[in-house]
Amino acid sequence: MDRRLIWLAVGAFATSTVAFVFAGLLPLISASAKISIAEAGRLMTVFSLSYAIGTPILSTLFGAVDRRRVIALALLCFIAGNALAAASGSYLGLLGAQIVMGTAAGLFASTAQAAAIALSSPDHRARAVSAVLGGTTLAVAIGAPLGALIGNLAGWRSTYLFIAALAFFCLAVLWLRLPHGISGVKLSLKERVMVIGRPGVLPSLVVTFLYLTGGFAVICYFGPLATQGAGMPVAMVPAMLLVFGLGAIIGNYSSGQLADRLGATRLVALSLTGFIAVCLLLTAVLEFAPSHLAGPLLIALMLPWGIIGWMFPPAQASRLVAVAPELASLTMPLNVSAMYFGIALGSFVGGQALELAPPAELGLIAAVFSLAALGVLAASTRQARRRGFQPG
């Protein structure tokens, strides 16, 4: 494997850690900035919306620019956003930092994948993209708990400084190692978006959106789940994230093998069904388990949740590619935008719910969104079969 792909993956690790570490920083930011949990959660909503909206727009604007320069620009802006967050003395300053980080992270992700494809031979392109996306998985497994631990030990501002330093190191290495002249693809925003009209694409994006909405209605609020729901100290949140991340590694690794055996559509359905069960079990634990058992049981649930949850993204991506293989370069960025629109809505809905109900109810909300995703999946699968298309 080209070693330059490793540094693209490290860049993906740094830019993705911000999204997943927020669950561990939420109680710390809320207490430090003297804002409610819901207000702190809106920072994640703003980051995700900036990512989802900014990625296709910036990819269009910089589509024909040398990939090396675009990667450098994206990382510079990302570093600036983290520095702004660390130095911010107000809620508005934090919101502005989230906008900068979200748009920069989205631009880096789309450009890094394009660069990985350009650096690889045609028969190794899928492996190259997988290597870069592996940085995101490691962000869940290692970056989020490590960032939360740093936040608990040295303050949440230190987490942003750590991520900025890591991104700066990646910037220096990639600027030296990436070759000049990696050209992009110049497409209009209309050309990028019109692919939604292809049969099967929109329902697949809706499934992604609904699933991530339900997932992040809970994931974004792991801190309140632990402290308010299970009565654990905030210092235990990094442990929760670590167990969840270990499950994510297992789920991500096993997804490809299971998809080959069961089919991607069936695996997505199983992932959605399993996620609904875990969410209902989470609510039952927080509602009915004795106080001395609620915390350990909540942590134990993180492993199967991570496994089930991270079986979904690779299998869902495989389904979307199968719908229109020749348009994969366009449908994959749209799928990422659907993911971050879902994260934005999930973090907003979860924050609003916490202002009206105890943390245990978040599991029910997540289950409802996943049940809706399962319904869309079933309907779109039946429609595809009527068209004579056999989904994977």
Rank of each mutant, 00 (worst) to 15 (best):
V10I: 14
S16Q: 07
S16C: 12
S16K: 01
T17S: 14
A19T: 09
V21T: 14
A23H: 01
L28F: 05
S32V: 04
K34H: 13
A38S: 15
A38P: 08
M44Y: 07
T45C: 05
V46F: 04
A52I: 00
L58I: 09
R68H: 10
I71M: 05
I71N: 06
A72G: 08
A83F: 02
S90V: 10
L92G: 09
L94T: 03
G96P: 04
I99F: 08
M101T: 10
G102M: 01
A115D: 02
A118F: 02
H124A: 13
S130T: 15
S130C: 10
A131Y: 07
L138D: 01
V140G: 15
L146V: 12
A165D: 12
C170E: 00
C170Q: 02
R177F: 05
H180K: 09
I182R: 11
S183F: 06
G184E: 06
V185Y: 01
K186N: 12
L187S: 01
E191C: 06
G200H: 10
S204D: 04
L205Y: 08
C220M: 13
C220P: 02
A226G: 14
T227M: 14
T227V: 14
G231R: 06
M232R: 04
V234H: 00
V234G: 01
L242K: 13
F244V: 04
A248D: 02
N252G: 12
S254G: 09
A259P: 05
T265D: 15
L272S: 02
T273E: 11
G274S: 11
A277K: 07
C279A: 13
V285F: 05
S291C: 07
S291H: 12
L298E: 02
L301I: 05
P304I: 13
G306N: 10
W310P: 05
P314V: 12
P314M: 12
A315C: 09
A317L: 07
A317C: 05
L320P: 03
E326G: 01
V336A: 00
Y340V: 10
F341V: 11
L345M: 15
S347E: 01
V349A: 05
L354Q: 11
L356Q: 15
L356D: 12
A360H: 09
S370L: 09
S370G: 06
S370Y: 04
L377F: 14
S380F: 01
T381P: 01
R385A: 10
R386H: 11
P391T: 01
